[in-house]
């Protein structure tokens, strides 16, 4: 359980980091390392050069503006979790981060690293898709901005090229009056979810006006639940749930199956989480 030999560098600028990645046979960016180091300990990933970005000035910045929160690539999860300003503008950051790992993991792990790692059962990539976050990357040919839904392609698979570095992720502000719920079923607190849901729901007069729903731990990448969103529109919480449950199950028609749960179980859990999130949003809307 020790990493195989590799070379290490610690550049002082993003362009040096890009150069180091471009020159490496198999380079990886090291930010918090809370997923990468265990993968290297297990020898699941082949790394010839680790490019540590901790000395790149400004990458640990978290910028809170009325329109959104921009999180730099080296900003830790603990730092963002503790940021009241960030939680006020993008409540999903705080509610999602509460589910991420444990204190010791969040003290090192980064928000951007979790998104770049693209674990299909992770909360932050799903949040990024739910709020339409933008991932900024720098590479040999300059910078580009990628929408989260286009960035996250599959399990541990992103649109990032080999020599590109994620520099920051911008999370747009939640709509006024919206309630953000992050809920999941996991074997133990802090574990990756068996199945989870990010829901951004706008209740008006005890009725769901609109809902943005993204499931995780269901497919290879965060899964937008468009049928369940449609089924929730106008929902008041008291009538039968079957339409909502069926819609969520239809969205998750190709849910995966593994040692933890069958695809059928994941579909049922997802539907239950959608109903639970909608009820929670309606209840919190009723008592401002």
């Amino acid at each position: 359980m020790k990493p195989a030999p590799f070379e290490y560098c610690r550049p002082s600028s993003v362009s040096e980091a890009v150069d180091a990645l471009a020159a490496a046979e198999s380079g990886r960016v090291l930010a918090g390392g809370q997923s990468l180091i265990p993968a290297m300990n297990f020898r699941l990933t082949d790394v010839s050069v680790l490019v540590d970005i901790r000395d790149v000035a400004g990458l640990d910045r978290v910028t809170v503006e009325p329109g959104g929160v921009t999180v730099g690539a080296a900003a830790t999860q603990s730092r963002v979790l503790a940021d009241d300003g960030a939680a006020a503008v993008v409540p999903g950051l705080r509610v999602a981060l509460r589910h991420v790992g444990h204190l010791q993991i969040r003290n090192r792990g980064t928000v951007c690293g979790s998104i770049a790692h693209a674990d299909p059962a992770a909360e932050l990539p799903a949040l990024a898709v739910a709020v339409d976050a933008t991932i900024s990357v720098e590479g040999p040919d300059g910078g580009r901005n990628i929408a989260a839904r286009d960035f996250l392609l599959g399990p541990f698979w992103t649109a990032l090229d080999d020599a590109e570095v994620v520099t920051e992720v911008c999370f747009p502000a939640a709509p006024e009056g919206a309630v953000t719920v992050v809920d999941e079923i996991s074997r133990r607190a802090g574990d990756f979810a068996v199945t989870g849901l990010v829901a951004i729901i706008e209740p008006v007069d005890a009725v769901v006006r609109s809902a943005r729903l993204v499931g995780f731990g269901v497919g290879g990448a965060p899964m937008r639940l468009t049928e369940a969103e449609a089924a929730l529109s106008g929902w008041a919480g008291h009538h039968t749930d079957s339409a909502v449950l069926e819609a969520a199950a239809a969205d998750a028609a190709d849910a995966f199956e593994d040692i933890h749960a069958t695809a059928e179980y994941r579909r049922e859990v997802l539907g239950a989480l959608v109903v639970r999130a909608a009820r929670k949003a309606l209840n919190s809307g009723a008592s401002p």
Binding site: M1, Y8, R10, L30, G33, Q34, I37, P38, N41, L50, D52, R54, S78, L103, Q104, I105, N107, R108
Partner: peptide, 19 residues
């Protein structure tokens, strides 16, 4: 393996010495 690094609890098995 939890230790404190600059005041924060961290897992020392998930950190390289060079970090």
């Amino acid at each position: 393996c939890t230790v404190m690094v600059d005041g924060d609890a961290v897992r020392s098995c998930l950190m390289l010495t060079v970090q």
